[in-house]
Design a protein around this nucleic acid. Structure first.
Lengths: 350, 350
DNA sequence: GTGAAAGCGCTAACAA
DNA sequence: TTGTTAGCGCTTTCAC
């Protein structure tokens, strides 16, 4: 009560003055350190509560030499589901280590650098980055200072660091193989940027499988399908070819949804198969239900956090970089099991 | 180069020593302050780059008396779409103000307090909170210290602060009205916690509309439908009643998806109408496409951020609390326009 | 059991 | 144009 000073928050000094003890004793009590008599400790706590004292962790961390008990996460906000699950995994591990997870999101790849450096300047104990920019060499200073860093989803470029990724090549291969096994010979691919390693690796899996089966592939790959609209257009273009694909492979879940839109909108005489990379909430509710390749994103988050804390808690940052590759799984739901040239079922009624 | 000291990052002192200037001059250069000769400034910048210097913002903020140029956001990770859009809106405004947005997510309502207080201890300049806990009186100290705070989606309890919410009552009313206008007399409701103000307000809109139309309502409301599974079960129970509802109103998008599951799974002789509160990505791709009440979550984020910065940039924190109520919109897609007792279309083929 | 002094890295105020 | 001093709020060291 009696909060005169405008917008200034009480310090240990204020508490100490009020209790009639030294600032050091207050510090001891508030940090649970021993060496203060029971009675006085109680008094300190009471006064601190009354005053609404909150320890200033800026000062604390400064004194403690860069131990902020905080880890920073930087992601670009694009594929919703990915982000959510990742943070869940990270949070789980961070909670066990008593650390706070601070996430900075960026709307564009260009802003990645400023977000990362802002976190670094705020002296987070470690950084988990889902790189969206083309180059991470701006982190050289942090690497030299041995700041623990882990890259998720894609490896960093221009710098070496621990990495946690999905086995994108295998996933792309499995999807394509699955379609080929059902008789498809012309499989279209829709992706965003071929420069993103995730994308190019998934496409590589596709090409590997095609080559193995003796199929041509390149002319059915469409890049730069951005957003649901872009993906939808790319699919429509593929389906409008003189000799159209009988199956589609969408390289991420935004592309997948765009593909579903294209397939629902098109007046096709034959059903077209579809497999999407990355699962999404209502995949099993669509008609037909969408077959997907899933990656365990939550596990990626967990692994990344574990890597960070093992670096923080002593594993020398000079030791060899670790690359964790997690498996993907195909979930067959229907759309990926459609065979070539199956006529569209006709419906009566609405 | 030559990074001897393990895991210690260079300071202005290091740069100053290397350049042969005082630390203050270095500070001036690195902050773009005037009063340093061109040549020396250049030298400072070069050396800083070489050394991989990053200003320690902990020290800076400490010295600057709690101006961290950072705002904290706390959300519970549950309804995906909500979170994403909210942050996008906040980021947009924060970028204009040159502030960094740090988000802390919590997996449970109990952890809300620790996340919020951790951010407060780190001296963020303002807090945007989507409250999940039952009581926010733990923020009394922050309120007394005039820390700018805005609550989004629901108002705070136990403390008064600026608030940005959707017009949940009106949304609930509009959904119900829409169904009643199409002839429905028995409308089931599925919600999570009746203690959450969002939920209870949406249900209130429902009850208002029912009362106005002279319909009974209470016996068709099902609370505690948690997660998609819970919602699905609650719907199945409603549909299994001797005298089942002819329409459903799902109070959030998780409930909506659960409801879709229930409707797709059930062997019904009649189609059941459905309206969901809050839009979701594939709502228009389901069969039938799902009619929803949308709230402009991105705008909520923008408004919340604007409120925070107007407090930070001078609007006295003692001035009256503002409550912003944003309108909701009904998007008719099909599921909400089904009339009572319309027979299910029969299908031929798969 | 308690406290005084020093200092973490930075910047504002004031000298030179 | 440049540097010195002091101090933000905290914790560590060491003395009492």
């Amino acid at each position: 009560m009696d909060e005169r000073r405008l917008s200034t928050r009480p310090t240990m000094r204020d508490v100490a003055d009020r209790v009639g003890l030294s600032i050091k004793s207050v510090s001891r009590v508030l940090n649970g350190d021993p060496g203060v008599s029971e009675a006085k400790a109680e008094h300190v706590l009471t006064v601190a509560r009354e005053l609404g004292f909150r320890r200033n962790d800026l000062a604390r961390s400064l004194r403690l030499q860069d131990r902020t008990e905080t880890i920073g996460v930087v992601v670009r906000q694009a594929s919703t589901r990915f982000y959510d699950s990742l943070i869940r995994g990270i949070d789980e591990v961070a909670a066990r280590h008593g650390a706070l997870v601070l996430t900075a999101t960026t709307q564009s790849a260009e802003r990645e650098q400023s977000a990362v450096l802002a976190l670094s300047s705020r002296r987070v104990d470690g950084l988990i980055i889902v790189p969206s920019g083309e180059d991470q060499s701006y982190l050289r200073a942090e690497a030299a200072a041995r700041m623990p860093m882990v890259f998720v989803d894609r490896p960093a470029r221009g710098i070496s660091a621990d990495t946690v990724v999905a086995d994108n090549v295998a996933g792309g291969y499995a999807a394509t193989q699955h379609l080929i096994a059902r008789g498809h010979q012309r499989i279209g691919v829709i992706g965003t940027r071929s420069s993103a390693s995730t994308m190019s690796e998934r496409a590589r899996g596709y090409r590997d499988a095609c080559r193995e089966a003796g199929l041509a592939s390149e002319d059915l790959v469409r890049w730069n399908a951005h957003g649901q609209e872009g993906a939808q257009q790319a699919c429509e273009e593929l389906l409008g070819l003189a000799h159209p694909p009988t199956a589609l492979f969408a390289l991420n879940n935004v592309c997948t949804i765009g593909a579903v839109r294209a397939l629902q909108g098109a007046q096709l005489s034959r059903q077209v198969a579809l497999i999407g990379f990355d699962d999404f909430d209502t995949a099993d509710l669509l008609n037909p239900p969408v077959t997907v390749i899933t990656q365990d994103v939550e596990e990626m988050g967990r692994r990344a956090a574990e890597a960070i804390f093992s670096r923080i808690d002593g594993r020398p940052t000079t030791s060899r970089r670790e690359k964790t590759v997690l498996p993907t799984t195909l979930i067959a739901r229907g759309s990926g099991e459609i065979e070539p040239d199956r006529p569209v079922a006709r419906r009566i009624g609405a």
